[in-house]
Simulated assay, not measured.
Amino acid sequence: MEKLFFDVTQNDNCISVFTKDAEVLQAGTTIYSMPIKDKNDEYQKFADCYDIHFIFDDYIASIDFYTIPRVDIMAIDSQGGYIGTVGGMSDMESDMPICYIDRDSKVFWLAKNFKEFLKNCKNWKEQLKPYDKIELFTSKEEAQRKYEFVDIHA
């Protein structure tokens, strides 16, 4: 079956697209930030003990790459790496995998879902495995030269 992509970085209101002739997947790198009012000691413990700095509205990380499929960045580490959900928005109840992208643009599989990631976060850097299911591009335009995108505004 043919795979088509739609850009989620510019389309906040579109969650999915369906067509009978192709599989349509989300593309792009997004940031999952939480309201500042939700900051608490538990999130600070993740930062202090595990080097997992969840993103809040008072500090939004700057991302300089575009992913296929979508990666929703929810946390950073002190070495310039990103922790994110593959294929959709970050959600504790989701079954989507969690990945790590290091500062050298190497991609690693981290956990099968968010709950597993939280359960095993004490030694998360030791659990990294190379992950070839995500491609990094410098921009959406570069990704469009390789993949076909659906225009959801048409």
Results as ranks from 00 to 15, higher is better:
56 F>R: 03
38 D>Y: 04
18 F>Y: 10
120 N>M: 13
8 V>M: 02
74 M>T: 07
9 T>P: 01
30 T>H: 02
149 F>A: 09
129 K>P: 11
83 I>K: 05
73 I>H: 02
119 K>D: 15
59 Y>G: 08
106 K>P: 00
80 G>V: 04
70 R>I: 08
53 H>I: 14
145 R>W: 01
125 K>D: 04
50 Y>R: 07
88 G>S: 13
18 F>D: 04
138 T>D: 13
100 Y>M: 06
95 D>W: 01
64 D>N: 15
27 A>M: 05
27 A>N: 03
6 F>Q: 03
115 K>V: 13
149 F>M: 09
121 C>V: 15
145 R>A: 14
68 I>M: 01
129 K>I: 15
46 F>M: 08
144 Q>G: 11
44 Q>W: 01
126 E>G: 12
36 I>M: 04
11 N>S: 07
85 T>H: 04
119 K>V: 14
84 G>E: 08
89 M>D: 14
49 C>T: 09
99 C>G: 10
7 D>A: 03
68 I>W: 05
123 N>P: 02
55 I>D: 01
72 D>G: 02
55 I>K: 03
107 V>L: 06
132 D>G: 14
131 Y>P: 08
25 L>F: 06
29 T>L: 04
134 I>N: 05
80 G>C: 06
42 E>A: 13
113 N>S: 07
89 M>P: 04
8 V>E: 05
70 R>P: 05
153 H>G: 10
21 D>V: 05
113 N>C: 09
104 D>K: 10
62 S>L: 11
75 A>R: 07
72 D>H: 00
87 G>H: 10
148 E>C: 12
44 Q>H: 03
110 L>A: 13
104 D>S: 07
123 N>I: 12
78 S>K: 09
2 E>V: 03
131 Y>V: 12
133 K>D: 15
17 V>E: 04
21 D>Y: 07
141 E>A: 14
117 F>R: 09
26 Q>E: 08
45 K>T: 11
5 F>Y: 15
113 N>T: 12
133 K>T: 07
138 T>V: 12
